[in-house]
Design a protein around this nucleic acid. Structure first.
Lengths: 196, 196, 196, 196
DNA sequence: CGGTAAGCGAGACGGTACGTCGCGTCTTAAG
DNA sequence: CTTAAGACGCGACGTACCGTCTCGCTTACCG
C-alpha cells in the first residue's frame, strides 16, 4: 500500500470547513478579484478561523489553485464526426468559460499567478492544461484518420499555439472580430487543411 | 497649438527626482518582483518623498508602465535579405529581452497587470505591441516580394500567433526544447513555406 | 542648550491623538482591567490607528504608566498644625484614591506591573512614591519640632512601613476593621508617641 | 462517612499526568514568568493534553496556585530561646524563599494575581499567610513571657506590618541597604524593645 | 526685490491585512 | 470515562504598506 491506512491521531480536519472556504474563495474571487482577495475576508465569509485556512495552505496562490481545481469538470472530448465540428465545439466551450465576468477574472487570476509564480504555473500546467492537450490529440488523430489534416502535424504544438492565441487575444484584444472568430482563423491557418 | 505655452506657476517638478524613482522602480522590480514591490520602498530607494510619487502616478501600475516604457528601445526592423534570417534575428532579440531575471519579471508584471487591468492592457498594446506588429508586417511583405511565403498570409494574425506562443511557452514551459527552438517550430508551421 | 531647539523634520506628532489614547487607556483600564486591556481596543476607542500607539510606546506597560502619570495631581502636604491631623488627612486622601473601583483597579495594575516588571517599579518609585516620601518627611519634621514624636525617627522608614501596610491590607484584607482604622493603628504603633 | 466510598466508574485520573503538569507549571513559571505562561506550553512540556488540564482547573490562576502550594513546606516555628534569634531566623528563611529568580517570580505571580483577583488573594491569605501569622504569634508570646517586648503588642498587627514592608521593599527597593537589614530595622522600630 | 505658488523631503496619520500565537472547546481513537 | 493528539472558531498581537495629510524648506516666476 502506498498510502498508510493508519489515521493520524487527534481530531480530523473538518470537511465542512474546507468546503466552505473553497466556496468563499471562488465567490470573492469573482466579486473583488485576485489582488483585493484577502484571507481575512475569505475566513469571514466562510465562517471559519484564519488559522483553519493557514493550517491547510501556506499562501493565497495554493488556496486559489485548489479552489479553482475543485470546480473543474472532466475533460470532454467532442466527437462530431468532423474536424471543424469538433474544433468549433472546443472553441465554444472555451468561450463559455472565459467570456463572462467570473471567467475573465479566473483567467486573469491564473495568468497573473502563473506568470509571477512558476510553481503555480507548473501545477496548472499539469492539472489542467496537459489533460486537455491529450484530449485535443485524440481529436486531431481522428482527423488524420479521416484525412482531414496532414499526418505529420504535431498535435501538442498545435494545441499550444491555439492556447497561446486564445490567451493573447483574451488579454490584448488585438482585433475587432469576435474572439471565437479570431481563434478559428488562427487555427485554420495552422491546420492548413489539405482540402485547400 | 492647443496646449498653452505658458509654464505653470510655482516650482517645476524635479526631473532628477522623477528619474530617480523610475530607476528605483526598475531595480526593485527586478529584485523583489511585482507583488512585493511597494511604493514606500521605491520612495526610500529613490530618496524621494512618497507624495512626489503620488503627485505623478495614481497607482502602482501606472508607475511601472512608465518605468518599463522608459527603457524600451526603438523598434528595430531586421533586414538580412532572407526571411528566416530576419525571423531568427527577431526571436533572438526577444529571447535576449525575456530570458533573464529582469526580463521574466517584466513580462510577468505586464501580463499580470494586463490580465487584471484591461486599461493597462490597452496602453501596452498601443505603445508596445502595435509598433512591433507593424515592423513585423514589413518583414513579411519583403518575404512575399521574394516569394518566400504565400501572398495571402495575414501578417497581423501571424504576429499575434507568434506573440501568443512566445507568451504561453514562457509561462507554462510546455516543452523540453529551448524556448527559441519551440517558437521557431511554431512559426515554421504557420508560415508553411512554399519552398518545402 | 540641553534640548536642541531645532524641530525634527516631517509632520509633527498629533497632540490630540496622543491625548485621546491616554484617555481611552484610563477608561478601559477602569472598565475591563489590566489583563483584558488590549491595544486594539484602546486604538478603537481613541479613534486612532494602532501604529500611532506603537510609534509612541513599545509595550502596554509604558503606555499605562504614561496614562496614569498624566492624571497625577501635585503632592499636597497637609498642615493642620497637629501630627494626627496631618496623618488623618493623608490617610483620608489615600483612601479616597484607592477605595473605589477605578482606584482599586489602578492599584492592582500598578502592583501587578511593578512586581513583574522591575523597570516599571522603578519608574513608579521615582515619579510617584519618592515625592510623597519627601512630603511625608516634612510632616514628620514639623511633628518633631512640636515634640510630638521622638527626634531620632527615620521618616523614610516610617513612610515605607506605612505604604507597606497600606498595600498589604488593601490586597489581603487581614482585618475586619476599616482599612483606614487599621492603617492608623499601625502608624500609632510605629510612631510610639512620647505622650504615651 | 459522608463521601461515598464507591469509586467513580471508568478510568481513574492519572496521578502521573497531574504531577507532570504541576512540575511543568513551576518550571515554566520560573523560566518565562507569569504573563508569558501559556496553558499550551505547560501541556506540551508535561506531555499532557490540554483538556486534561482544563478538566482539573478552570483558569491559569487556579493551576498556578495549586502548583505553588504543592511546593510549600510546613510552617516552621523557630525557637532559639531569644526574640531576635527567632526573628532573624524568620527573615533568613523569607530571604531564602524570595531572593532568587523563582522566588521573585513566585512573589510577583502571587501579588499580581492577588491584586487583580480578590478570590485568589483570599485563598492565599487563608492557606499561606494566616498559618504563618499564627506561628509568629507564638514567637511573640514567648518573647512577652521573657519580657523582651511589651505585653500589649498585637502580634497580628506586627506580622502584617512585617509582611507589608517585606513586600513593599521587595517590589520597590526603596533603600540601598540589604533587604534583610531593612526589614530588620523596620521590625526593631515596631517592637520598640524595652531593653533600649 | 519681495511675494506667491507649487514642489520637495520627511514622516505622522487612520486604516487594512498580514501571518502567528494562545485561548477554551470539540472530536477522534486508544487505553 | 480518561487520555494524548490535534483541529476548531475566535481574537489580539506587532508589522508592513496603503494613500492622505501636515510640516519647514526650496525653487521658480511675476509684478
Amino acid at each position: 500500500m502506498t498510502d498508510n491506512n493508519k489515521k493520524p491521531p487527534g481530531r480530523p480536519r473538518s470537511v465542512k470547513s474546507h468546503q466552505a472556504m473553497l466556496r468563499a474563495t471562488l465567490e470573492l474571487l469573482a466579486e473583488v478579484g485576485f489582488d483585493a482577495l484577502s484571507i481575512e475576508a475569505i475566513a469571514a465569509r466562510a465562517g471559519v478561523g484564519k488559522s483553519t485556512i493557514y493550517r491547510r495552505y501556506t499562501c493565497k496562490e495554493d488556496l486559489i489553485a485548489d479552489a479553482i481545481e475543485n470546480i473543474r469538470e472532466d475533460v470532454a472530448i467532442p466527437d462530431t464526426g468532423n474536424l471543424w465540428g469538433d474544433i468549433d465545439a472546443l472553441i465554444q466551450s472555451a468561450a463559455q468559460i472565459t467570456l463572462n465576468p467570473l471567467g475573465r477574472q479566473t483567467v486573469a487570476t491564473i495568468v497573473s499567478s502563473a506568470s509571477s509564480h512558476p510553481e503555480f504555473a507548473q501545477i496548472y500546467w499539469k492539472k489542467y492544461l496537459q489533460p486537455r492537450r491529450q484530449a485535443f490529440s485524440v481529436v486531431l488523430e481522428r482527423a488524420k484518420a479521416r484525412n482531414e489534416i496532414q499526418a505529420d502535424l504535431d498535435p501538442c504544438l498545435i494545441f499550444d499555439i491555439m492556447s497561446g492565441i486564445m490567451l493573447y487575444s483574451l488579454i490584448f484584444q488585438p482585433t475587432t472580430e469576435s474572439w471565437e472568430a479570431y481563434v478559428r482563423r488562427a487555427l485554420a491557418l495552422v491546420l492548413k487543411e489539405t482540402s485547400i
